[in-house]
Amino acid sequence: MATRLRLLDDAAWVSVNDERAVGTSEVWPVADSFCSCALAWLVVEAYVDVGADGRQVEARAHGHCVSCGEAGTTAWLPVGRVTDDGFSDVTGVRRSRQGSPASACCGEP
């Protein structure tokens, strides 16, 4: 069965199968070239896109690094995984993969 993905609440939440699954206001360690910091600490202010690659749910987030202040939109980053028991979110350092998820969903406030 297809996973329903959309952005809710003025893009403050990623909705996975009609449940708010991943919200803004988290501070993520991001190990990509989001800014000049070796490890960006990204405060997520809004989601821009959400998509899925198999069971992995990925999103592009808008925010800024709390260490250096650089603002922008991330590459596709994993935010969680759909399992047989529901959704489990990603913890720890985030890294982007090359390319976009197979099925992207348009943003939806």
């Binding site: 206001s25 988290e26 501070v27 600490w41 405060v43 709390v66 260490s67």
Partner: peptide
């Protein structure tokens, strides 16, 4: 306006 930061290593 609401925001987050890190203080003493914690968000």
């Amino acid at each position: 306006r609401g925001m987050k930061t890190r203080k003493d290593g914690d968000p």
